[in-house]
Measured scan of single mutants.
Amino acid sequence: RADKQHVLDMLFSAFEKHQYYNLKDLVDITKQPVVYLKEILKEIGVQNVKGIHKNTWELKPEYR
């Protein structure tokens, strides 16, 4: 399990490339446990629960 700041850096870097990611792809990118990753994502992102981007994560507007 990596340092939180290191995980945040990896996530922000990923979100610079694409606006939406599913959790599986973010786990592959960060190599972090799902529960730990979700904890961090809830602080900086929102999970889309409907629409064409259903079940994906994106950054909260203040982090874009």
Rank of each mutant, 00 (worst) to 15 (best):
D25R: 05
E43G: 05
V49F: 06
N48S: 10
Q32E: 08
V49T: 15
K4V: 05
V34Q: 15
N55G: 14
G51A: 05
V46E: 09
V34F: 08
Q5K: 11
K4H: 10
E39P: 11
V46K: 14
A2H: 06
G51F: 03
H53P: 10
F15Y: 13
P33M: 00
L59N: 02
V7R: 01
D25E: 14
E62F: 04
L26R: 00
Q32T: 08
Y20T: 12
S13E: 15
V7H: 03
P61L: 05
H6Y: 07
D9C: 04
S13N: 11
E43C: 06
V46S: 09
T30F: 02
Y63R: 07
Y21K: 05
V46I: 14
Y20D: 05
Q19E: 14
A2W: 03
F15P: 00
L37P: 01
A14D: 00
Y63N: 12
N22W: 07
K54A: 13
Y36S: 07
I44F: 05
D25S: 08
K31Q: 14
V46R: 10
P33A: 02
L26A: 01
L8C: 10
V49D: 12
L23S: 03
M10N: 04
I44G: 02
K17H: 04
K50F: 03
A14L: 13
L59V: 05
V46A: 09
I44P: 02
E39T: 10
Y20R: 14
A14K: 03
P61I: 03
L8Q: 14
T56S: 15
F12D: 05
S13Y: 09
Y36N: 05
Q19F: 04
P33I: 00
V49A: 15
K31H: 02
G51N: 07
V27W: 03
L23W: 03
E43L: 04
V46D: 09
I44E: 00
H18W: 03
P33N: 08
L23H: 00
Q5G: 10
Q32K: 09
Y36C: 07
V7I: 15
V49P: 12
H53D: 08
V35R: 14
E43Y: 01
D25W: 01
D28C: 11
K42Y: 07
Y63T: 06
M10E: 06
N55Q: 08
T30P: 00
Q19K: 13
D3S: 10
V27A: 14
K60A: 08
L26K: 00
R1P: 05
D28W: 05
I44C: 08
L11M: 15
H6C: 09
W57A: 02
N22I: 05
I52W: 08
Q19S: 13
H18Y: 06
L23K: 00
S13L: 15
K24V: 08
K17W: 02
Q32W: 04
F15D: 00
K50Q: 14
K50T: 12
Y36M: 09
H53Q: 10
D25G: 04
G45D: 01
L41S: 00
K54N: 11
L59E: 01
G51E: 02
D9F: 03
Y21N: 06
K31F: 02
I40N: 03
M10R: 06
L11P: 00
L8P: 00
E16P: 01
R1E: 15
P33E: 13
D3L: 12
D28P: 02
D9W: 04
L11C: 05
M10Q: 09
I52E: 14
D3C: 05
I29P: 01
N48P: 10
L37T: 03
V7Y: 03
H53S: 10
S13Q: 15
I52M: 12
H18D: 07
K42V: 10
E16K: 12
K4R: 12
S13H: 10
V7Q: 02
G51L: 02
I52D: 14
I29M: 14
P61N: 11
D25F: 02
L37M: 05
G45V: 02
Q5T: 10
V34C: 11
R1S: 11
V35A: 14
L8M: 12
T56G: 08
E62G: 09
K24M: 09
I52F: 15
E39H: 11
P33Q: 04
F12N: 07
H6N: 11
V35Y: 09
Y20Q: 11
K50H: 15
V46P: 00
F15L: 04
L37C: 04
K31V: 03
V49Y: 13
T56P: 03
N55S: 10
A14G: 01
D25Y: 04
K17F: 04
V46M: 13
L59A: 03
S13A: 13
K60Q: 04
N48G: 10
A14H: 10
Y63D: 02
L41T: 00
G51K: 03
Y36F: 14
L11G: 00
P61A: 10
T30N: 01
M10F: 03
Y20M: 07
K38D: 06
G51I: 02
K54V: 08
K60S: 07
F12V: 13
L11H: 01
V46T: 13
Q19G: 07
K17M: 04
V34Y: 04
Q19W: 05
E16H: 09
D25P: 00
A2C: 03
K4M: 04
K50P: 04
K17I: 04
N55P: 06
V7N: 02
F12Y: 13
